[in-house]
Amino acid sequence: MAEILMIEDDLELAEILSEYLQKNNYNVTIIDDPYLGLSTLNTNKFDLVILDLTLPGLDGLQLCKEIRKNNNIPIIISSARHDITDKVNALENGADDYMPKPYNPQELLARIRSHLRRESIKIERETPQNSDFEVKDFEHEILFKGKALSLTVAEYDILKYLINKQGGAVSREELIYNCESINEDTTNKSIDVIIGRIRAKIGENPKAPRYIHAIRGIGYKLVF
């Protein structure tokens, strides 16, 4: 499940958007203070930021600029300010999108999906060249140390997702909701079984793993 940080001081609107996004399998953290929002982003893992411009204590344009200094996360501006100058400044200060309020939550959902899809493609293209793993999408195979692994569709999707996360921790729920071949009714235990099969196929000792590490209380990460 993708993690979204919403920095918005209109808590009624934030709750409405959050409920809608959560129904569509997105986890939303709402922060109404810009400084706390920046701190939360720097200390937690998020996939996308929804940012209001009119915030107490710090203008959203400046906050957008501060976020972009150290983070390449997609930023969608959600603002009642319709002036073209604000739109231009937001984009020039690092925003990826600008949505004037009011808008339909369906449009916000579509834009979130679009940005996360592009981010996923970018991550895939940036897979480290010195990795022992290589994803070959056209052939629908994954090479391990230059040799193609014999994987089921579910094993392929999970291993590819772990590779594309480039060492980031991935929850079992995130794997269930983001791997097309995995049924949404799949249990966490089933994910553990599939991970075990992948480990066996790369000759990994689960008690002393070199590549796929279990993260207590979260899920797994793949270390290159």
Rank of each mutant, 00 (worst) to 15 (best):
A208I: 04
A90V: 08
E119S: 12
T127V: 15
K136W: 10
Y177S: 13
D97Q: 05
I218W: 02
E173V: 07
F46V: 02
D192G: 03
S39T: 06
Y103E: 10
I7Y: 00
L143V: 04
L61Y: 04
I112K: 11
I76W: 05
L175W: 08
G167C: 12
I218K: 14
L162Y: 02
L58D: 00
I158E: 04
V153W: 03
D96T: 11
N205E: 13
I202R: 11
A169M: 07
Y177V: 15
K122E: 09
R117H: 11
P100R: 10
L91K: 06
S120R: 10
S78H: 08
K136L: 15
Y35H: 13
M1W: 02
E3V: 03
H213E: 14
S18T: 12
T152E: 15
N44R: 07
S171L: 02
D86P: 04
F46C: 04
E126M: 14
L36Q: 10
Q129K: 15
V223Y: 03
D97P: 03
N93G: 00
G146W: 09
L108H: 01
A95H: 02
I215L: 14
A200E: 15
E184G: 08
I194T: 15
A14W: 04
S114N: 14
P206Y: 10
F133P: 07
H82R: 12
Y103S: 10
K69E: 15
N44Q: 05
N104R: 09
G196R: 10
A90T: 08
D157N: 12
D192T: 08
F133C: 11
P206V: 07
N27R: 12
I16S: 11
I67N: 01
E8D: 09
V170Q: 02
A200S: 15
D192Q: 12
C179E: 09
G37H: 00
L41G: 03
S78A: 06
Y98P: 02
A200N: 15
K87M: 11
K165G: 07
S79V: 03
T186Y: 07
A154E: 13
S120M: 06
